[in-house]
Structures are given as structure tokens and as C-alpha cells.
Design a protein around this nucleic acid. Structure first.
Lengths: 110, 110
DNA sequence: ATCAATACATAGATTATCAAGGTATATAAA
DNA sequence: TTTATATACCTTGATAATCTATGTATTGAT
């Protein structure tokens, strides 16, 4: 991303993707880019530390597998504790979003 | 705030308040707290540097005035360039919010 | 007389992200 | 066959936003 958005955001988005299916790093970057209509362009230097942090916390587990091409990939799976963390982050996002829109008088809640 | 939210956010919110009326620092903190239902609890160490930065950019102008109580206050007024900056930030927020909700499958856009 | 709220400010630490670099393989194009 | 591009992992150092903590000073209430 070329703008600094939120701390809340990135790991929440990563966990959300992993909730649907296990993914490897590069795939997360591409998927996020595509699903956000190119708004998020996560750098590898941002993502990998996040993944390692989530793994250390026990929110995800990694598992190395070889792709059909023969290339080695590291798939990340979400854990029950990761799902719980995701729910918390989604709730926080909701709270934050609502508060901002209250202040700016957003039209989203009419 | 006890959570680190966004860079985008704080100066946008400050400018938004100043768009309605000139305010002094302490008032901005209290107003933001109240209007966001206590979600934002901006620290002075966060706000004052932001105000000084906005002033340096020419987005706001400060004007010292004495309150009815006799106390000296530094009122910040938004400038035309500040209004333009605010519009840009509001647009960015909209883009960001939409992108996040697309990824998490938010229900706000049904 | 003391304490809480008001009102300004700065300094240092923390943390998220980026930019830039490194390694290596697969595939398509020249 | 070389070369470029996409894939796939990673780390280091810099930047920037925010927090915590601290400082000063006045006002108003107990």
C-alpha cells in the first residue's frame, strides 16, 4: 500500500482470507489486491512479518507443500484461536468505522 | 486512543471538526471523544503535533484569543487549502472503507 | 489550601508499514 | 539459449503515526 492505513486492518484482512481457505504468502498479496480492486497493494516486507507474528501467537499454522509445478509453497491455516482473534478484529473495525462515520456525518447509516 | 487506528483518520477528523467551527486543542479532544461515543480518546501528545503539522502545511491557521474566563486559548481555523485537503482525505477514507468491506464481505453495501 | 479540570507543549519509545535488497525456481519470449 | 518476467520466500533499515510520560500554568470547586 502506498498509504498508511491501519494496524487493525492488515492482519484482520489476512485472517479473513485464511478463514475461507489456507493460502500462501504470495497468494494472499495477489488475492487482497484483486478483491480490494487494487486498493491494497501489500508489500512482502509487510506481509511476511505479519504472518510470522500471527504464527507465533498461534493464530495460524504453516505447512509446507509442493505445488503441481513442483514449486515449494508455505500454506498458512487459521486456527481456532485465530478465528477468535478475527472476530475481535472485525468487531473493532465495526466500532471504529461507525465512530468515524458518526464524526464525519457519513451517509452510510441512513 | 488505546488502539492504533489510522493515519488517515486523525487529521481528517480534526479538519472535519474545524470545518464546522474554529476550535482550540482541548476542545477538539473533548468534542471528538463525545461525538464518537468515547471511541476516540485522542492524547495531547497526538493532537498537538498534528495541529502544528497542519498549520505548517497551511491547512489551518491559529489565532490566540482569550476566553470569557480570561484564559488564553489558541483557536485553529481551517483554510481553503485545508478544506481541499479534507475533501481528499474524506475521499480516501471512502475508498479505504469500501475496499475493506469488500474483502470482509461487509453488509453495509447491500 | 488543595485537588481536579482546563490548556498549552515537548521528548522518547513503540509499532506498522514501506523501500530496498537478497535468494531461488518456473515459464515464456527473444 | 539467453533473457526477462512472474512466482515465492525472506530480512534489514528507514519513516511516520501514535502513545506514554513529563512539564508548565491557570481556573474553579471542595
Amino acid at each position: 500500500m502506498d498509504k498508511r492505513y491501519t494496524a487493525l486492518g492488515t492482519s484482520m484482512l489476512v485472517l479473513k482470507l485464511l478463514e475461507k481457505e489456507p493460502m500462501y504468502g504470495y497468494q494472499i498479496i495477489k488475492t487482497l489486491e484483486q478483491q480490494s480492486s487494487q486498493v491494497f497493494r501489500l508489500q512482502e516486507g509487510t506481509l511476511y512479518p505479519i504472518l510470522h507474528g500471527l504464527e507465533q501467537q498461534g493464530a495460524v499454522i504453516s505447512q509446507t507443500a509442493s505445488a503441481p509445478s513442483g514449486r515449494i509453497r508455505k500454506y498458512y491455516h487459521i486456527t481456532p484461536s485465530g478465528r477468535k482473534l478475527l472476530q475481535e478484529k472485525l468487531q473493532e473495525w465495526e466500532t471504529y468505522q461507525t465512530a468515524v462515520n458518526q464524526v464525519i456525518g457519513g451517509v452510510l447509516f441512513e
